[in-house]
Amino acid sequence: MRLEKIQFKTQIWSGDGALSGLEDIHDQRIFVVTDPFMVESGSLSKITDHLEAKNELSIFSDIQPDPPITKITKGIAALQEFKATLLVAVGGGSAIDATKAMKYFAKQASHGEVDLDLIAVPTTSGTGSEVTNFAVITDSEKGIKYPLVTDEILPKIALLDANLVVSAPQHITVDTGMDVLTHCLEAYVSINANDFSDALAEKGFRMVFEYLQRVSDDGSDLEARQKMHDASCIAGMAFNLVNLGLNHGIAHAAGAQYHIPHGRLNTILMPHIIEFNAEMEKGIMETPNQAAIKYAKLARFLGIRGSNPKIAVRSLINHIIQFRKKLNMPATFQDYGISHELFEQTKHEIAEAALKDGTTAANPRVPSADDVIKILETSYS
């Protein structure tokens, strides 16, 4: 058996009163990174109200989805000028990832002299970025997303408060919620999976199916909101231990080309990735591989039984497709509005980038370029 080294560096504050813990911070020069909506809507004050009495604050809100390198460079210059002593990231995955990148590159630029602690405050329930050593940054000119993977960017504290996500619209709620499901599925069948990651992935998987429909139907359901917020973090802990897989490898590559919201893109790909990993093309009576056996275990949590694992996997795929439909999510790239012309122009480039993506390395079945193109084509229409 291989040696497993399990470590959770980030302290998690979850539930009622989590925000009030910020009032214990004092005498800091806090560089707050967020997106323009958080400032314009006044939502940022829910966090800054707990900080501004005892600290100096500088707000950097020049953040956009799929944060480009240019914005990160601008942020580093601003935090250096402010002489920040603490970073606070407030927002979705883009704001948190951008702050992680600023933390990392500011340390590199100072030759290790500036190593700022980071408090991550997610306002969406999906990325798990508040507990992971991953960040994704974009080279807009080349249309390429680069994963940054290092323990140096792990937040010191993750603050999970459902009151910060209660106003999220339905489409963002389900996009991010299905991203949680993707994280659980990929961590569970990763080639690096272990007992610890499996326990986390199983729990997150069950929570998504128990609470995502509830919060989609009623965004004011605070119990369901908090449970999905926690599930996002749990799934992040799972994949931070063992990496992800081809679903994210393709999503990173296709997202840079099509700008489909990340969770929605993952959800379009998901049934086809499960089919590929479980080798469903060989028929349901063929001896199941390890991925099929593990997917079948997850199916049992949903009450799905099968006379053999592949029958259970087929039922799991159908269950996910129906779940996606109930959440009013598109099933294909075409449904989302991607033209056939654009798809044909980009599919080979996407396949090449997906194979090079760092997350693809942990996929349970090694894909070829032809395999990825086939998955893309079945995902198109």
Results as ranks from 00 to 15, higher is better:
Asn363Pro: 06
Asp16Ile: 15
Ala231Ser: 08
Val174Cys: 13
Ala135Leu: 02
Thr287Ala: 14
Gly93Val: 06
Asn318Gly: 12
Ile76Gly: 06
Ala235Trp: 00
Phe8Lys: 09
Thr332Gly: 02
Val114Arg: 00
Tyr146Pro: 10
Phe276Met: 04
Gly263Gln: 05
Asp195Tyr: 09
Leu19Ile: 04
Met237Ser: 10
Ser190Pro: 01
Lys156Gly: 11
Arg305Asn: 15
Gly245Tyr: 07
Ala253Trp: 07
His26Tyr: 14
Ile96Asp: 00
Ile375Lys: 03
Ala361Arg: 11
Asn318Asp: 05
Leu116Gly: 03
Asp217Val: 04
Gly263Glu: 07
Glu4Cys: 12
Met329Thr: 14
Leu302Arg: 02
Arg365Val: 13
Glu186Gln: 00
Lys282Asn: 12
Gln257Cys: 12
Gln28Leu: 11
Ser381Arg: 15
Gln322Ala: 14
Pro147Met: 13
Thr85Arg: 01
Asp161Asn: 00
Ser58Asp: 08
Met38Gln: 11
Asp24Asn: 13
Asn163Lys: 14
Ser43Trp: 07
Asn363Ile: 07
Gly15Gln: 02
Lys145Pro: 11
Gly15Leu: 06
Asn328Leu: 13
Lys74Asn: 15
Thr85Asn: 00
His229Tyr: 10
Arg29Glu: 15
His259Trp: 09
Val372Pro: 01
Val189Gly: 07
Tyr380Phe: 13
Ala187Met: 00
Asn289Met: 02
Ala199Thr: 14
Leu118Glu: 08
Lys46Ser: 11
Ser14His: 04
Val121Cys: 00
Ala199Ile: 05
Ser110Cys: 13
Ala135Glu: 04
Leu164Phe: 11
Gln64His: 14
Glu341Ala: 07
Leu86Lys: 15
Thr378Met: 01
Gln28Tyr: 05
Glu377Arg: 04
His319Gln: 12
Tyr211Thr: 10
Ser167Ala: 06
Leu19Lys: 03
Gly177Tyr: 11
Ala120Lys: 00
Ile284Ala: 14
Gly42Val: 06
Ser167Trp: 01
Asp371Asn: 13
Thr360Glu: 01
Thr360Val: 01
